[in-house]
Amino acid sequence: MIDPAYVEGFVKILFVCVIVTAAYIISTRNLLTLVSVYAAQSFILVLMALTLWAVEGSPVLLAIAGITFLSKVLIIPYFITSIQEKIRIKRDLRFHFLSPTTSLIISIGLMLVIYIALSRIAQETTGTSSLFFFGAVIGISLMMMGMMVTFSRKRAITKVLGYLTMENGVLLFGLFVTELPFIIEFLIIIDLIILVLLTTILTVGLDSTLEEYHQRIHRFYLWEDEEAP
């Protein structure tokens, strides 16, 4: 059997990596690396699920790792990258309400608040290990950081990536605190894939009538085989 201390150390390193990727997603202006960082973050979650599976041996964890890998590491990033290639937006420079710097500083505050809030709950429920408590804090913080990305960016693609980050936070929380039934996990993934499909529509523009919209899709060469000139 694997040494628990070793597992704890490894999971903590993964937590730190998750925070680093989240900070990058909040502060970057480069859209191309944003998607790969999102994929990396999802991959870290896969590793976490696999580690927990190695310790606890519950098959649900393995299934979660499997579908997360398929959907969030392979399909969704691939899809968003292909949209990006077609609409040729490389950078996101416009922000609502918060600049990346302020978002970073606010997220420190958020983490502190979440930590304080959760530690009160943890005091009442005895017997929670520090790792699981830590996982819950990071999970909710990741959700909040994703939320900040969603409302502080103007581009639809970044908004969607913020939403996906939020979902990663939910998954992280679910991995460590409550065990979500597998069917819910699966439905969430399907929702996400539909959401990313909808991104195409959002990216090209919701403000149009259906006829105009059709023309726009042609203009951006979306869903067509030929390349943009």
């Binding site: 903590k12 937590f15 730190v16 925070i19 680093v20 900070a23 502060s27 600049s99 990346p100 710097t101 970073l104 500083i105 997220s107 420190i108 983490m111 502190l112 930590y115 520090s130 790792l131 408590f133 830590f134 804090v137």
Partner: peptide
């Protein structure tokens, strides 16, 4: 430039928070 420094600030504050957590 402050956004670069904010990154370092963010990580080092996190270190302190994490050290308190775990």
């Amino acid at each position: 430039l402050p956004s670069l420094f904010a990154m370092a600030f963010f990580f080092s504050t996190l270190i302190i928070i994490i050290e308190v957590f775990a």
